[in-house]
Each structure stands twice: as C-alpha cells, then as structure tokens.
C-alpha cells in the first residue's frame, strides 16, 4: 500500500503544478454548484419566473412533483437539469488528471525507470487511478454539498430539500459518480497508450461525454425523464462498462506493452 500511496502523492505533486489541470479540478466543481444555485436565486427573486417555468414542465416530470407546491416543482425541475453536471464532473476531472499523468510519463520517459522498480502493475495502475479518481470524486461531492448547503441557505421549499437528499440524487452523486470516474480513468489509460500529447488524449477521452450529453439533451427536450430508475440503470450499465474498460486498460498497462508498444 505504501507504494500506491507514494504514487498518489507524487502524481498530485506533479500534476497539480500544471495550471490547466488545476483549473479543471477547481473550476468545474464551482460551476456545477454555482449554476443551480444561481438559478435558485433567480427563482427566489422573481416569482413570475416560476409561473412561466411551471407551464413548461414536461408531464412526465410533473409526476415526480408529488407533495410539492407549484413553486417547489418548478425549483426542483430546474435543479434537476443540473444533475448531469454532477455526473460529468467525476468523468472530466479524472480524464484530465490521468491524461496529463500518463502522457507526461510517456513524454519524459519516466515509466521505464518506474517499471524497473519492484512495483507491481496493479500498484502502478492502482496508484495512478486513485490519484485521478480521488480528486474527481471529492470535488463532485464537495460541489454537491455546496449545492445542498446553498439551497438550504436560500430557503428553498422543504419539498425541494427532501428531493436533493433523496436516494435518486444520492445514488447519482455517490454511486454513479465514482463509477463514472473509473470509466474516465480507464478511457484515459486506453487513449493515452496511443496518444503522444496530453491535450489530444484528453480531448479524445472526452468523447465518453457524448452518451451523457445525449441523456442531458433528451431530458431538456422532454424525451426522457431522469428518475431513480434511470439512474439505477445507468449505474448497473456502468458496472459492466467499467469491467470491460478496466480489463482493456490493465492489458494495455502491462509493462512489456508500455515499453515496446506505447509510442
């Protein structure tokens, strides 16, 4: 475990000296918390806005507004649009960290001396994955905590507060989030094995955003409804996807592959 811990410390010491990585890790969570809070603030300041929104709420979503007032339902509908941001965060941050970390090792040719130590492949991959996943998941959870505290301070309706702490949201943030972080790291390892530039690797890896963005826009268009059932299905699907991606990443991360195939 000491080697994994030392790798995590080394990764953070190195990667957070990169301003772009630091910006991604710091800025995205602030955005994820600030956007819904800003909208809540706008709603609280303008009751007419709530009425206007109320007319646009899809019928499917209205079914989720049991026991909520019209104002609470409108507030909840608007905040719900941002739940996907909390799913994108744990994906984006690990991809950025892992891309810079792995490509950085490739370009400075530091992987060979590292592989020459008694470290096992599992320790190396585990350390790199942890160094990427921990900030992504922690930042997501902190942003979510900021949203909940901010919403409470803004005195949103009790029904909305209940919804923010119901299993649907908690599953999305605390279960789907880490699973997505693992997806991000696996994809970054796979892409990094072929890429030679961290930005290219990062941008290519970000293609995994597409399915999530599709869900986001489908919800905005009222085509689907992100509810507890869908979040659970996403979680189950991610377990399967992660298992496959992780197996591919581990295979690519074998020391012989790194030394002889990674260019």
């Amino acid at each position: 475990m000491n080697r994994v811990y030392q790798i995590v410390l080394k990764e953070w010491a190195e990667v957070f000296k990169n301003r772009f990585v630091l910006f991604t890790v710091a800025f995205l969570p602030i955005l994820a918390a600030a956007l819904p809070l800003g909208i809540l603030y706008a709603i609280n300041s303008s009751p007419d806005f709530v009425t206007d929104i109320g007319e646009d709420i899809p019928a499917g979503f209205a079914a989720l507004c049991n026991n909520l007032t019209g104002e609470e339902c409108a507030q909840y509908f608007l905040i719900s649009q941002f739940i996907l941001l909390f799913m994108l965060l744990p994906l984006a941050i690990p991809i950025t960290i892992a891309s810079y970390s792995i490509i950085g090792e490739k370009t400075t040719r530091t992987l060979e001396p590292l592989l020459a130590t008694p470290i096992t492949t599992a320790e190396l991959l585990g350390g790199k994955a942890a160094a990427a996943v921990i900030p992504g998941v922690t930042a997501t959870w902190m942003a979510y905590l900021a949203l909940v505290i901010g919403a409470a301070l803004m005195d949103v309706g009790p029904g909305v507060m209940d919804r923010l702490l119901d299993p649907f949201w908690l599953t999305a943030v605390f279960v789907v989030g880490p699973l997505l972080a693992l997806t991000g790291v696996s994809v970054a390892v796979i892409v990094s094995s072929r890429a030679t530039d961290p930005r290219t690797a990062e941008q290519t890896s970000m293609l995994v955003f597409l399915p999530i963005m599709a869900v986001f826009f489908a919800q905005l268009a009222g085509l689907i409804l992100i509810d507890a059932r869908l979040v659970l299905l996403i979680a189950l699907g991610l377990i399967a996807v992660d298992a496959v991606l992780l197996a591919v990443a581990v295979q690519l991360f074998q020391r012989e592959n790194i030394l002889t195939r990674w260019k």
């Binding site: 190195e14 400075t108 001396p113």
Partner: peptide, 14 residues
Amino acid sequence: VGILTEAPGLYDRL
C-alpha cells in the same frame, strides 16, 4: 538490480 535507462527519465516538475 539497478537500471540506468537510455533516457534519464526524471520528473521535471519535482
């Protein structure tokens, strides 16, 4: 075994 690899392979930011 100690290995000196072809490239020094050091972490430049550290």
